[in-house]
């Protein structure tokens, strides 16, 4: 990761195609991530979005926050709608009917990506369409009120798997969605976080430059759902990376490489502690999480040849 990352905001365009004035909660990490993605993409792009927070906060009739062509149809099919657009583009370009070569980008939340739309995403990857899929992972179904998804981390309390007298919340480990994308043998897969904006934007540019499908998995902090103060979004994203809970890496044509290697991993407690969704965790459970994170991180390092 470049050292310039923290200081060079003046190198980024001021022009926004996902414009301010939308209805996201204050401190929303997803909206910040979308803003960065769109700055990296520029104007020659068609955006497909799944149902979820980002769709609802940006397009209440008769308003729109979008200055690029944008389409939402359903919850589980953003990848497939994108494949339809891509197929149309191919046919119309071949036939000489006007349609620009605009980049095609589909976006969906973790619910749309990990759960209800996985089959559609897998199909689109397998068929090899030329598009970028961005997963906006805030680790639950936030739009409908903080229900669990298969991206929700072990131990987190959500409204459908709440902590209670005999439950500690989520009892399963977060699904490894980037690995599932990698298993499709697509040219480019990467993880990113809004707290590392330059890394995120570079990855977007790289992802849309490849021919064929690419997958960008963005970790997006949700103050409302995670029960943290709204001014902690950036900090918590950094803590997720620095503790090894959410490592930043790329998989370029099957080759893993770490984008940022913290000199030493911080204890996961630093990351868990500020969050209301983990408040009920016992030291034993925190320990269990620590072990798992350390193990997964070591595994990833292995894949990166470290």
């Amino acid at each position: 990761m470049e050292a310039v990352n923290l200081y060079a905001s003046r190198l980024v365009t001021r022009r926004q195609s996902f414009t301010p004035g939308h209805r996201a909660c204050s401190g929303c990490g997803e909206a910040l991530a979308v803003k960065l993605v769109m700055k990296a993409l520029g104007r020659d792009v068609i955006v497909v979005m799944a149902t979820g927070c980002m769709e609802v906060i940006s397009t209440q009739l008769p308003y729109t926050a979008w200055e690029v062509p944008w389409i939402h149809t359903l919850f589980e099919n953003a990848a497939t709608v994108a494949t339809g657009i891509e197929s149309a583009r191919k046919a119309l370009l071949r036939k000489g009917t006007h349609l620009s070569k605009a980049k095609i980008v589909a976006m969906g939340g973790d619910g749309a990506t990990f759960d209800i739309g996985t089959g559609a995403l897998s199909g689109a990857f397998e068929r090899g369409h030329d598009f970028l899929y961005v997963c906006l992972d805030n680790e639950a179904y936030m739009n409908t009120g903080i229900q669990r998804s298969s991206a929700t981390p072990f131990g987190a309390s959500t409204t459908t798997q709440p902590a209670g007298k005999v439950s500690f919340g989520q009892s399963t480990w977060k699904k490894n969605m980037p690995a599932i994308a990698v298993a499709h043998d697509i040219p480019y897969v990467a993880t990113a976080c809004h707290s590392y904006p330059f890394d995120l934007m570079n990855k977007v540019k790289k992802a849309v430059a490849v021919e064929g499908p690419s997958y960008l998995h963005i970790f997006a902090v949700c103050p409302t759902g995670w029960r943290i103060p709204t001014d902690m979004t950036i900090k918590l994203g950094r803590l997720a990376v620095e503790t090894g809970v959410f490592p930043l890496y790329e998989v370029d044509n099957g080759k893993y490489s770490l984008s940022y290697e913290p000199p030493e991993l911080r204890p996961v407690m630093d990351y868990l502690k500020p969050q209301g969704r983990f408040r009920h965790l016992t030291p034993e459970l925190v320990d269990k999480i620590q072990q798992r994170v350390s193990r997964e991180y070591a595994r990833l390092m292995g894949k990166c040849g470290k």
């Binding site: 497939t80 994108a82 339809g84 657009i85 891509e86 349609l99 397998e126 068929r127």
Partner: peptide, 28 residues
């Protein structure tokens, strides 16, 4: 026939693909 045939993985995706295609202006 000069067309793109999209062999999707389900009917839900068949229609979803058509939504995208038609929204992009293609005869679908």
């Amino acid at each position: 026939l000069d067309a793109n045939y999209v062999p999707v993985e389900s009917e839900h995706s068949a229609m979803s693909s058509c939504l995208g295609s038609s929204a992009a202006g293609a005869r679908t």
